[in-house]
Design a protein around this nucleic acid. Structure first.
Lengths: 346, 346
DNA sequence: TCTTAGCACTTATGTTAATCGAGTGCTAAA
DNA sequence: TTTAGCACTCGATTAACATAAGTGCTAAGA
């Protein structure tokens, strides 16, 4: 257990180091601490903190920097989220203020706003119901043997894909396929749709069409895309700024991660209602992100489920500021979406 | 006018420097040149080449590197495209061999293949007719007051967008709008459509609907997107490898350029049938890309127009190899697309 | 006139040694 | 428990020096 003074010193070290990026020594601490003791005393306390692995040296006679456990302790016990500046709140409000056609636009835009605000890299996921259901399927002939398949879910997601058909497919046949799918599958959770798609449907469709595999594959593709979570990424290039000293291969891996929604989902993990901070190797078991921290927050849109926003920055980030910002942002985003859906549900 | 020997020396300097990235001196040249002269002779010749600004020194006693004009001379008079390895041809063929649903997939995939092959950054543009025409417009109600607008052009491009309508819009009204647009505008070049959209159409539509502005704006959006050229980018991250010594701000600018199709179009300029090489500040008048070269080639899909592929790499790139590769690739891509369209036109 | 050997000169690069400064740990006294 | 004092460590900076690669120039040879 740490004494008050030790906690104060740890807090000061984290704050100073995250602001300046330079290991902080006993003298510097004496000057900024409110207590009136000598640097030798501070040194003794620092030795204690080092012995319990909360801070460490970069070399035998350097100042101290927080260890992973030190950051952890700071985040768990010491950090007080900054109050967000009025400026920034206004910025968020106006950026979210435009009139958007689709949820996706709002959520994509959110990633950008948040990354501008923090100068880190951000991920956003739109609110999703655990089990969204199929609410409609269309096949729209576009002429020239092209057809567009459109799938709509009950929380308003729309996925589409165009494909070519052989010229002996008639529009009656298309309608028949659509009718079967809508009759049999609308209202079911998407997972169940996937199941049934393998079992019943092929047989039924065969009555109207000799080789329905092509159609069903397209339907399957669109279905997969609709049931897949999709993250938006903001401030990709910011990684270049805050990854000092990182070799190119690591950067490549990080960028490749950003292009794979599944990987992002895995990295973010199961979010809780609290704002969650993962530090260094807590993020994933590879040490690709060992010098990074990830702050995750959920936002709650009542009946329409919960979404996620997240922030990737260096381990030495100003946590209090970032936690404040992400908290404020999720609130604004939640209100915006609640308002959006109210309009949508009427 | 250069003597044969001077040309030989220039060629050797370019080849050596593009391969090794190290300024090349008279001794090194003596060893690799077929002629049997001393280094002093080479030095004299080099002095001549330097006096006409084809090569230059990095410092007063360094070896020589090609100047911009040197590269230009090399590319215009000396380069012989490498014959592409069977390996690579096979790779191209198989990578383009899959069965794609849409032209866009092929063209996007091309950017990736070409960047893998060259380890540079690539841009591809699908073949486009100068004046493609509107061939159809649909409004598909998706339920819940969502509607999808779909626009099809006569060379097979499909653009779509979903939007919300107020609940007092009836499906008869939608059909009326679609009918007017299709009756009046199908068959016209997209530019003319844009024109007419401002003049005649609003009046006509008003007969069926009080405030058609929303609809017409959506239609306009989709139209804009359909008439806009869209480049695919491959090997974005390769920039990091070949931009040695480039500061982060420049990198940011380059990446931001890649995200703006208009800017790419401007940078690529008007392509010719020849394979075109732009070196350093020839690329654009800002000096953002002064250390880069751009190789552009068109590919010809007969009646379906011409597309563009391009390659961005460092000024010191192995031109003979790259020109060979891009040439081979454009041929393969052209055949693939001709085959694709044959299937499509039947 | 062209070529070449020889040489003095220039510059980047790498190594070593010296110095400086920030910071630590320890000891002994208050 | 605190603190002044001091020896010690290590990174960072600088200067001095050597080396290697390369050049231009000169004068002699073909």
């Amino acid at each position: 257990m740490l004494t008050d003074r030790q906690e104060m010193i740890l807090r000061a070290i984290v704050r100073d180091y995250t602001n300046n990026g330079v290991p902080v020594g006993s003298k510097a601490l004496v000057e900024q601490l409110p207590v009136h003791v000598s640097s030798a005393t501070i040194r003794n306390e620092m030795a204690v903190l080092e012995s319990v692995d909360l801070i460490r040296k970069t070399h035998s006679s350097s100042g101290r920097i927080p260890s992973m456990r030190g950051y952890r302790y700071y985040v768990d016990h010491l950090v007080r989220p900054d109050v967000v500046k009025d400026n920034d709140v206004d910025l968020i409000k106006t950026s979210l203020g435009g009139d958007f056609q689709k949820i996706d636009e709002i959520v994509a835009q959110s990633a950008t706003i948040l990354s501008d605000l923090t100068s880190y890299t951000t991920f956003t996921l739109k609110p999703e119901l655990k089990n969204s259901r199929l609410s409609g399927f269309r096949l729209v002939p576009l002429g020239n043997r092209q057809v567009m398949a459109i799938l709509v879910t009950d929380n308003g997601d729309v996925e589409n894909q165009t494909f070519s058909v052989t010229h002996n497919v008639t529009s009656e046949q298309l309608e028949a396929v659509v009718r079967i799918i809508n009759d049999q599958l609308v209202g079911l959770p998407l997972e169940d749709v996937v199941e049934k798609l393998k079992l019943q449907i092929p047989a039924e469709v065969t009555r109207y069409m000799q080789k329905p595999e092509g159609f069903l594959r397209i339907f399957g593709d669109v279905l997969t895309r609709a049931s897949q979570e999709r993250f938006y990424v903001g401030g990709r290039m910011n990684v270049l700024d805050f990854s000092e000293q990182t070799d190119i291969d690591t950067l490549r891996s990080i960028y490749s991660l950003m292009d794979h929604t599944d990987d992002i989902a895995e990295v973010l993990g199961e979010p809780s209602n609290q704002i969650q901070v993962k530090i260094g190797d807590e993020i994933s078991n590879s040490d690709l992100l060992k010098n990074y921290s990830l702050i995750t927050a959920t936002y709650d849109v009542d009946a329409h489920g919960k979404g996620i926003i997240a922030l990737l920055g260096p381990t030495r980030m100003p946590y209090s500021k970032m936690i404040g910002l992400i908290g404020a942002f999720r609130n604004e985003l939640a209100s915006k979406l609640i308002e959006y859906y109210r309009h949508f549900d009427e």
